[in-house]
Design a binder for these strands. Structure first.
Length: 104
DNA sequence: AGTAAGGCGGGCA
DNA sequence: GTGCCCGCCTTAC
């Protein structure tokens, strides 16, 4: 029985480079859209290097959201993957977004 | 066992 | 747009 955290990572790992997902989508993939907060906690507490692309997770409104090492750092990482960000907003958010359906 | 914390989400002033 | 509140859930103390 893997922990909730690991379950989150497992899903997050399915997000391909250059795309993003939201805490909510992950939560839905886990079965309950209200788990979003817990998901954020998971990424915050456990960053598990390179294995988990925590920076590809943004807020449901398309804004970057937070990051343990600084939102600015997160934005840089995303941009380095080809994702464009202006004023903390993901450009083409709806296009780059991976829905929970894609995780199943 | 109770409580606080957390990278959220949605709604409303 | 900003700020505040409430809801929801898991982990750590």
């Amino acid at each position: 029985m893997i922990s909730f955290y690991e379950h989150s990572y497992k899903i997050l790992r399915k997000v391909p480079k250059g795309k993003v997902t939201t805490y909510k989508e992950i939560a839905k993939a886990l079965g309950n859209a209200h788990l979003a907060r817990a998901v954020g906690l998971a990424l915050n507490r456990n960053q598990t290097p390179i294995k988990i692309p925590c920076h590809r997770v943004v807020k449901s409104d398309g804004s970057v959201g937070g990051y343990k090492l600084g939102q600015n750092k997160k934005i840089e990482l995303l941009k380095s993957e080809g994702i464009k960000i202006v004023n903390r907003k993901i450009q083409g958010f709806e296009t780059l977004l991976m829905h929970s359906e894609g995780f199943k």
